[in-house]
Design a protein around this nucleic acid. Structure first.
Lengths: 145, 145
DNA sequence: TAATAAAAGGATATTCTTGTCCTTTATTCA
DNA sequence: TGAATAAAGGACAAGAATATCCTTTTATTA
C-alpha cells in the first residue's frame, strides 16, 4: 500500500498542474492536464468533477473553457485535497484497526503512530497548493509519472 | 485511506493473537483466532495460509492442530508482516506517485516524506511480534475490533 | 486402521477502486 | 442563431481487495 490512493495522487498532481497554469492566468483543459500529469483522461475527468463540486477547483465550459484555481484555493493546504479524496483515514483511527484503541485505552503503538500521523498532518497542512509553482516554473519538478 | 490494508490489519492482529497463545505453549485454531480478533474466519484462513507459506507463522494440521509462532518469529519485527502483506509501498516510492522523483531529482515533499517514512520504518522494525505479549497478558490490550 | 479434527488449496462471489463510453449542458464565436 | 468546444453526468467495464464455499490433505487418537 502506498500512502495515498491512486485517485488521490492524480488529484494532487492535477491540482498542482492547474495551479501552475492559473498562476500565468491560463485555464487548463482536461486533455492538457491528463497529458501533463500522465493520467487516464476520462478517469481524471471524474476526479476533477468531484474536486470542482467540492469547491477545490473551478471550471468553465465551452470553447477556451477548462479548469483553474482562484487565489483563495492557491492558499489552501494540500490536506484539503487529501481529505476530499482519501478521507480522514491517514490522520485518524487506530493504525492496527482496533476499535477500542483510544487516548484512554491506547494500543501499544498508539502514541508512536500518533506522532507520525501528526507529522503527516502538519506537513500536508502547512504545504499550500500554490506553494509548488516556483519549482514548477523553474522546471525542477515534473508532474509526469 | 488507512495506513495499512484491511488484510494487513487482520494479519497483524492475528499474529499478535497467535504469539500470545504461543507464549503459554498453546496453539491457536482458526475459529479461535477469528473470534479473538473479530475477523471473517474464512478470509483470515487465506491470510494465515499466506503467512504460513512465507514462514512467518507455523501450522499443524489435524486434531489439536493450529497455528503458532516459534521463538525466532517472536523476535521478528512487525515490519516483516507489513512487508509480506502490503509490500514496500509504505516505505518506498514517491508519495505523489511521481516516477521521476528520486534522491537526485526530488519532488518538493520528498525529504519530508522521507523522514516520516523513515520513522514508520523504524517503528515497525524495532517493534517485535513478541513484544506485545506483556500487554496482552496484562489485559490492557484487546485485539478485537 | 478407521474416524475425526484442522489446515491447505482451488473455485467462486461480492464489493470497491480504477477506468471507459456516451449523452447532455453550458459557453464561445462566427 | 447555429456550429463548435469543453466540462458535467449517468451508465457501464475491468481489475483488485475482500469474503465465502467446497474439496483435499495431513495429523491425531480411539
Amino acid at each position: 500500500m502506498a500512502i495515498f490512493s491512486k485517485t488521490c495522487e492524480y488529484a494532487i498532481r492535477a491540482v498542482f498542474y492547474i495551479a501552475h497554469k492559473s498562476a500565468s492566468g491560463d485555464r487548463a483543459g482536461l486533455k492538457d492536464i491528463a497529458a501533463g500529469i500522465d493520467s487516464p483522461e476520462l478517469y481524471l475527468a471524474k476526479i476533477l468533477q468531484d474536486l470542482s463540486r467540492k469547491g477545490l477547483i473551478r471550471s468553465v465550459k465551452g470553447p477556451n473553457g477548462g479548469f483553474y484555481v482562484d487565489a483563495d484555493s492557491l492558499a489552501r493546504p494540500l490536506s484539503d485535497i487529501v481529505e476530499a479524496v482519501d478521507g480522514q483515514g491517514l490522520f485518524h483511527g487506530c493504525a492496527l484497526g482496533l476499535k477500542q484503541c483510544s487516548e484512554i485505552n491506547p494500543c501499544p503503538l498508539h502514541d508512536q503512530f500518533k506522532s507520525i500521523r501528526g507529522q503527516i498532518s502538519d506537513l500536508l497542512h502547512r504545504t499550500t497548493i500554490g506553494g509548488f509553482n516556483e519549482e514548477l516554473i523553474g522546471g525542477l519538478l515534473s508532474l509526469k509519472k
